[in-house]
């Protein structure tokens, strides 16, 4: 009875048996009453996180929106010149810049290849893990966990070394492959990072290597919730593995696949660290994706923060549109009770 009344916030603070409450100084007591009467406790608890997130995530996003309509460069940072509003000037500069279109094309093409590849590889490994015996499954998932756990910078540096023209493992293997597999001496000292296509081949393998474990583990978690009789009875009726997957597994796990698809698009469209390390910083402009291109405008001298913000805003808006889908899928799965 007492606890219900308290939760409703209607009852005055109970006098504690040991008189602890009345020992507090009057202003503190008054404040406590006030918090309780107005049911402010949850808002007070949220305050620190709301301030931190507001100042470092939400406000910078708004700032990007503001800066993208300004001519913001070094003079504005040092205070030598005032704010200059340029309307849609930055956006029209961007849209007429061929480098923007090539970086956008790279980002889109990269996601279009890596997302399905990661999903297919991850799902196959998840299905495999589900069928393996316990010890074998533990072995395979530990291996996958190691790839997943490797920090992006370590993994990127490692792949650059594996694909290095002097002493790298891949060029050495390719040199020794038989001719019908395109092996041979032309791989001698082949540089994988000097042009966009080979560089993004390396980044593709790198990102798939790092992200398939997450897909596999998530698919496996979904498979474990499925009653095994479903697939069993289909098998008895003569359905092959292909049919079982598309007729039974996929429809049941569709919400999970939806979330995984959206997360993968968000990550792969916005991939930064791996690209930055593999292409070796901001040197090769024809290897920029959208994120690196925006970053380059802000942090290569002379900085053009206005243009960079407009680019970053485009990237953010694209990702937010996909995020809306992700949030809706999560809410439908009951993420917010």
């Amino acid at each position: 009875m007492l606890s219900t009344a308290k939760r409703a916030g209607a009852a005055p603070p109970p006098a504690t048996p040991n008189g602890q409450w009345s020992q507090l100084p009057l202003p503190v007591r008054y404040l406590k009453n006030w918090v309780r009467r107005h049911r402010l406790a949850p808002y007070l608890l949220l305050l620190p996180s709301a301030v931190a997130i507001g100042l470092l995530l939400v406000w910078p996003a708004i700032q990007l929106g503001i800066y993208s309509f300004q001519d913001y460069g070094l003079p504005q940072v040092t205070g030598a010149a005032g704010t200059q509003w340029t309307g849609f000037g930055n956006f029209s500069t961007i849209l007429s810049d061929p480098e923007f279109w090539s970086s956008l094309k790279l980002s889109v093409a990269f996601s279009a290849i890596v997302v399905p590849l990661t999903l297919v590889v991850g799902t196959l490994v998840g299905l495999l893990l589900n069928r393996l015996g316990r010890r074998m499954a533990a072995f395979v998932s530990t291996a996958a966990l190691l790839a997943w756990a490797t920090p992006a910078v370590s993994a990127s540096v490692l792949f650059v070394w594996v694909f290095d023209p002097d002493g790298g493992l891949v060029d050495w293997v390719l040199r020794r492959l038989p001719g019908w597999l395109d092996g041979g001496a032309h791989w001698n000292g082949f540089s994988w990072t000097n042009a966009a296509l080979p560089a993004y081949t390396v980044i593709t393998l790198l990102v798939v290597w790092q992200s398939f474990p997450f897909i596999a583990v998530s698919v496996l978690a979904g498979l474990k919730t499925m009653p095994p009789e479903l697939a069993e009875s289909a098998r008895v009726d003569g359905a092959g593995p292909w049919q079982i997957f598309w007729r039974i597994t996929y429809p049941v796990l569709k919400p999970i696949f939806m979330v995984l698809l959206l997360l993968s698009v968000i990550w792969d469209f916005g991939v930064f660290t791996q690209v930055y390390v593999v292409i070796g910083g901001l040197g090769n402009r024809d290897e920029f994706n959208l994120g690196i291109y925006a970053y380059d405008h802000a942090f290569t001298m002379p900085p053009t923060y206005g243009l960079a913000s407009a680019l970053a805003l485009i990237l953010t808006v694209v990702l937010l549109i996909i995020t809306v889908g992700y949030v809706r899928a999560s809410v439908r799965q009951g993420a917010i009770d």
Partner: peptide
């Protein structure tokens, strides 16, 4: 989901 490499400019 906000991209860090975008926000980093303003921050």
């Amino acid at each position: 989901m906000l991209p860090q490499q975008a926000l980093v400019i303003a921050i």
